[in-house]
């Protein structure tokens, strides 16, 4: 059992870069992927993984929607909000969470506290009441 993200990422980069689906190439790609050294071997639940990858797919149209919102209406207020990390997250799932939050234009993760909090920087249309 290894980090899913690592393997998916390596294989994707390999096949997209070589653009070659012959058997030899697949064998080379899988071999290199497994042989390359990897760090943390702590795997989260498969269910969490599937949900987070689904959220990534949803995040792209949502990012474009938010981009149009902040283009049409000026967002001038800036606030910093603390958000709690969901329970039992492994480091790579936390990375994906941070990626999701930062990918949408209205929010940027500023800092990750190891005790389970994100500092998220928001822009808004007006001061929150």
């Amino acid at each position: 059992m290894t980090g899913y993200l690592n393997i998916i990422l390596r294989l994707t980069i390999w096949f997209l870069l070589t653009a070659d689906l012959s058997w030899a190439n697949i064998v080379i790609g899988v071999g290199v992927t497994i042989l390359l050294p990897r760090g943390v071997t702590n795997v989260g639940l498969l269910k969490d993984w599937l949900r987070t990858l689904g959220e990534v797919a949803v995040a792209i149209p949502q990012a474009y929607k938010e981009a149009f919102e902040i283009m049409l209406y000026p967002h001038r207020e800036e606030t910093v909000v603390l958000e709690r990390v969901k329970p039992r997250r492994t480091p790579s799932l936390i990375f994906l969470d941070i990626f999701l939050i930062t990918f949408t234009p209205k929010t940027i993760v500023q800092r990750y506290h190891s005790r389970g909090w994100y500092e998220v920087h928001y822009i808004q249309r007006r001061e929150t009441p």
Binding site: E77, E78, T79, V80, V81, L82, E83, R84, V120, H121, T128
Partner: peptide, 11 residues
């Protein structure tokens, strides 16, 4: 922080 002094507790 130099901006945004309001720190709420969202979640």
């Amino acid at each position: 922080h130099d901006v945004g002094q309001e720190v709420g507790h969202g979640g």
